[in-house]
Structure formats: structure tokens, C-alpha cells
């Protein structure tokens, strides 16, 4: 009995701890006044967000392009890499798998510095392109491992069964392997989009003029005091994330049921 009260208290505490900051954020996004005190309900900051924040939207556009683009490229490369590692037996195979973990373990700051050194060493101008390349490279291992995990759930003899029944290698890929690992590919892609959208540290090192992403923009905006526009933006993004997660869950369910 006591224990159950204790665990309920912990549960409630955790929920408050997790969601109270968000609630405060939502609350202030509807605040007429710019300061911390309540000045009445207003959609003023939302209006400003949507009509009068060109820099913010430019940063948002950069983030969207980088996130979707780098996630797509990382998903394509990571998926093919995982299939290759799963399908073919070659020298350095296990070495390759281990090395892929590295970017996930290394502190972001080291990746950021090393990418910066790499780009400047090659004389590549910092900008959207370098941010894009950096995001592809840190997204890749996540996609690779998610897809590989999915592949390894299945018995390799399924691939042999397809070949046995007359499928060429390409047909086996298209009709058996890709449909089977689709949930892994989708979650890999989503993970990549999320990681890319929220990345600050690595982006900070490799960005250049005209390549400000949303996290960088928010950071620089907040240095001059918290703007309620950022609160409004956060609420919009929370809603967007919830909607995306929900539709993805349904999509995955749909794939699984098909």
C-alpha cells in the first residue's frame, strides 16, 4: 500500500517535471505582455510569428531543407549499406559494423571540430552544403543500425527462398527485402529528420553565412532576451511533432497490417 502511494508520487513528480516547463511555455505564448507578468490572453505572438518574422522563417526553411535532404540521403546510403553488410560476406565486414558505431558514441563537439578541420583542410567554403554533408554523416549510422537490426530479425533463408523461387538479386531486393525492412527504413528516416532538426553543436561548427538553421537562430535570438515569438514557435513545433509522430505510428501500423 505504502509502496503504491510512493510509486504514484514518483510518477506524478516525473510527469510534472517533464511537462510543467512545456505548460509554462504554452501559457506564456498566449500572454499579451512581453514581460513575465500576465497581461491577458492574446494571439499577438502567433500573428508576429506568421507574418513578421522573415529571418526565423528563412532559418526554418534552411532547417527543413537540411533535415529532409540529409535524412533522405542518409536513409538511402544507410539502407544500402546495411543490406550489403547483411547480404554479402567480405573481409573487414565486422570491422565496418563496429566503426559505424563510432559517430554515435563520440561527443558531438569532437565530430563538429573534426568536420570543421576536414572542410577547411579541403578548402570547402562553409555554408548550407557543409551543413548538409555534416548532417548526412552523423545521421548515417542511425539509419544503418536501425535497418540492420530489422534485417537481422529475419532468417537469411528468406532471401535464399526468393532466389530459389526464381527471383533475380534485383527482384529479391525489390519484392522481399525492401518491403520487409520498410518499418526500419521509415524509423531510420524519422530519426534522421529529428536529429538533424534539433542539432546545434555540430551545425554550429560547420555553418557559414546564409546557412543559419532554426536552433542556431533561436539561440542567437534568445541571447537578446526571450522573445514570446519563440514561445509561439515552440508551441507550433510541439503540435507539429505530435501530429507527425501520430501519423507515423498509424503509417507503421498500416504497413505491418498490410
Amino acid at each position: 500500500m505504502k509502496r503504491s502511494i510512493f510509486s504514484k508520487a514518483v510518477f506524478a513528480g516525473t510527469i510534472v517535471f517533464l511537462f510543467l516547463p512545456l505548460a509554462v511555455l504554452v501559457f506564456y505564448s498566449f500572454n499579451e505582455s512581453k514581460s513575465g507578468s500576465w497581461g491577458g490572453f492574446s494571439l499577438r505572438w502567433y500573428l508576429k510569428l506568421f507574418t513578421d518574422s522573415p529571418d526565423l522563417w528563412r532559418a526554418f526553411g534552411n532547417s527543413a531543407i537540411i533535415a529532409l535532404g540529409s535524412a533522405a540521403v542518409a536513409t538511402a546510403i544507410g539502407t544500402l549499406g546495411a543490406i550489403g553488410v547483411n547480404w554479402y560476406r567480405f573481409r573487414l565486414r565486422s570491422y565496418l559494423r563496429t566503426v559505424t558505431f563510432l559517430p554515435m558514441i563520440l561527443p558531438e563537439i569532437i565530430i563538429g571540430v573534426s568536420l570543421l578541420v576536414f572542410f577547411s583542410g579541403l578548402g570547402i567554403r562553409l555554408g548550407l552544403f557543409t551543413v548538409f554533408v555534416a548532417h548526412v554523416s552523423f545521421n548515417l549510422p542511425f539509419v544503418f543500425l536501425l535497418v540492420l537490426a530489422r534485417l537481422e530479425e529475419f532468417d537469411f533463408s528468406i532471401i535464399e527462398a526468393a532466389r530459389d523461387l526464381g527471383a533475380t538479386e534485383a527482384q529479391t531486393l525489390a519484392r522481399v527485402i525492401l518491403p520487409m525492412i520498410m518499418p526500419g527504413i521509415v524509423s531510420g528516416f524519422l530519426t534522421a529528420v529529428t536529429l538533424s532538426l534539433e542539432d546545434f553543436v555540430i551545425t554550429f561548427f560547420v555553418t557559414g553565412p546564409g546557412a543559419t538553421t532554426l536552433p542556431l537562430y533561436v539561440y542567437s535570438a534568445i541571447r537578446f532576451g526571450i522573445s514570446p515569438v519563440i514561445n509561439a514557435l515552440s508551441v507550433v513545433m510541439i503540435l507539429g511533432t505530435v501530429a507527425l509522430t501520430w501519423s507515423m505510428r498509424n503509417f507503421l501500423k498500416y504497413i505491418a497490417a498490410k
Binding site: D155, S157, I158, E160, A161, A162, P179, M180, K258
Partner: peptide
Amino acid sequence: QNYALFPH
């Protein structure tokens, strides 16, 4: 031996 049916 383990059927190897296509799960999807």
C-alpha cells in the same frame, strides 16, 4: 527447414 515464408 524453418519454412522461410515471406512474413510481409
